[in-house]
Design a protein around this nucleic acid. Structure first.
Lengths: 204, 204, 204, 204
DNA sequence: TATGAATGAGGGTTCATTCAT
DNA sequence: GATGAATGAACCCTCATTCAT
């Protein structure tokens, strides 16, 4: 199989993805502060020096990790919003999926770390914040859909979206592995907070 | 003004408080992982070595910082719960106060960081989690009060308390200084999520 | 000359040996308590951080240093014991060789320091003590050989070995470079202490 | 009781002695490397700063400690040498006393540390070595007495004294607390090494 | 490209010594 | 004199990054 620029580029992308996935795994286990390039390289089965072939710095790797995760999340929530389905069910699915994946926990931590850490370059912080804000839109859409059908509370849909996402993220952060708060968490109960007041009355 | 043991002790306490306050400021800016003893000492105007006159290690300082903040918060929310006042108003107050103080922002970040950071020793993490859980109780009490008067949603009060606190903390984390998400946050709207569905209808 | 794993391993071993030799030199001069990684690195012409590429900690380096020295000594004294030679001559040789080499002086100092220094972790101390005790055996063998031929004093051979080794080590310690005690030291005279009382003249 | 210069001087001497004794105790327990001014002060029930009222530096304290110990030892061994007693018995007593006191262990370690450590100022090292050499004299005297009575081996008495003292010190160093070499040590057996060859024959 | 040794800055911590009270 | 807080240098160790092979 002869080398060609296209195939090289493909391999490069594969390696980058491998490194990013490995990074997320390690961070999920060790926490962001204890994750070194060494750890990531080992988890990916590459050498330390080789990591720098694909990412110019640790910051760039983390930044790229966030970019991809946020983009993926944005796509997935946009698709969800566009589904022809009960809005409340959509919220429930978001909630359940988010709380289920352990990697989301790591991702949320990285997100917060980057957004609250002044050591992170301003442009990266800005980019992360912008994507976060943009990703509120599809959630706000779901809220709007629910409001139209009278299933979801009135009020600024963007605000509701922010509350919903903040609640989920807040809960995610409580789930530090091994130190769980002894209170059950239930997607249905969470979604219920956003249901319109007279839902039941109506139904009855 | 000659020295005496009492005055010495007083000065000691003052210095400890100064260091803890400085630490809070710095951590809020840099994040816990990047906050060095050097930073704290500089912020407090002391030498690095002198920090160890008051705290035997960085861990102890952080642990003490959290202990104090959580204890203070616990007392304040307990007092709030015991007030003879509209439960919804109590929630509103909690919410407003929490989102108003910048120190709460720093404190929330530290709290989350400690609970999610493997660099923090396990026993400290456990202690923090335990206090966090204990501090849910007064909030659950408020929920119970509201449920008895029909003002607050039915369901496990402890769970509702966890949701409420998580939501506030989640929102707090979004408020990174300088990179605010362009969505207004309103305590009344937040409390509304926890109101009983047919409150108004009933009352009317 | 391209790199390959074998050659890498070889270089690694060379570097380790270089570091251990440098450490021995420095410790001999400064004493174990005042020898820093910095000193060792400088003596070896390497950077401080690089030392940790080869040894995971200062303790491990010291421990390895002792392990090698004691193992080498054990082999050499075992070989000596097995020689087909006059036992008294064997003792004389041990004595002369030991007092002659300056590295033995350094080694003795380290040995004693480790065994008497609470800064050294307990397990390392135990290992050193165990090897020291084991290395008494070959010397005791020599004593037994001499006792069989009536050339060496009666009594517990292990005890005699301990006395012999302690005497040599005690003398070694007196030989601090530049501050020598003005008393001549003579291997023959030392060995004479262990000769049987009425050996030759009387028996013949 | 009014102050007067004489009494002040007395108190000063008492405090110095207290500090030196405390230092020896602590060193015997912790080892020289782990003994800090703080430890010594605490053991003596004084404050850290106050130690510097009596000794200008840690080095001076250690140096003074050695000076006193060596002087005391010198006096005691001189008295022993002048006793009208069997020379072999004298050696036996020296040996037994030396190996019995735990503080002698600490003292021997300090002695060796100072003599083999180039960080110690040259003049202190020289002084220690000189006193050590001087203290060999009384031991040599005992040897001479024994040689005159035919009880002790022939040869340079000073050399024999050095061997005897080195042997005792070597054995002392083996007795690191908690890591004892499993070989019994017996003063009688040690003295026997220095007995004249045909002692028994003669006696019989 | 791939490797991992090498570097150097920085972090936590200790401790002899000084100094204001 | 007595106290213990304050200082600053030094120590061990880690880790992002570079570089020779």
């Amino acid at each position: 199989m002869p080398r060609n620029p296209e195939r090289d580029q493909q391999l490069r992308e594969q390696r980058k993805k491998l490194l990013l996935d490995s990074a997320l795994q390690v961070i999920a286990k060790r926490g962001i502060g204890l994750t070194s390039i060494q750890d990531i390289a080992k988890a990916a089965g590459l050498s330390v020096g080789n990591v720098y072939t694909y990412f110019s710095s640790k910051d760039e790797l983390f930044s790229e990790l966030l970019r991809r995760a946020q983009t993926e999340y944005g796509i997935s929530v946009t698709l969800l919003a566009e589904l022809d389905e009960d809005p409340l069910l959509k919220l429930r699915r978001m909630c359940a999926e988010w709380l289920a994946l352990e990697t989301n926990w790591a991702f949320t931590i990285i997100l917060q770390t980057v957004r609250t850490n002044e050591m992170v370059p301003a442009d990266i912080r800005q980019a992360v914040t912008d994507r976060f804000t943009a990703n509120l839109e599809p959630v706000a859409d779901i809220m709007r859909q629910g409001q139209r059908s009278g299933q979801i509370l009135n009020g600024d849909p963007l605000q509701l979206a922010l509350y919903f996402v903040s609640l989920i993220q807040g809960l995610t952060l409580q789930q530090a592995p091994g130190y769980v708060i002894p209170v059950p968490v239930n997607p249905d109960d969470i979604v219920r907070l956003f249901e319109a007041k007279n839902t039941h009355a109506k139904n009855i």
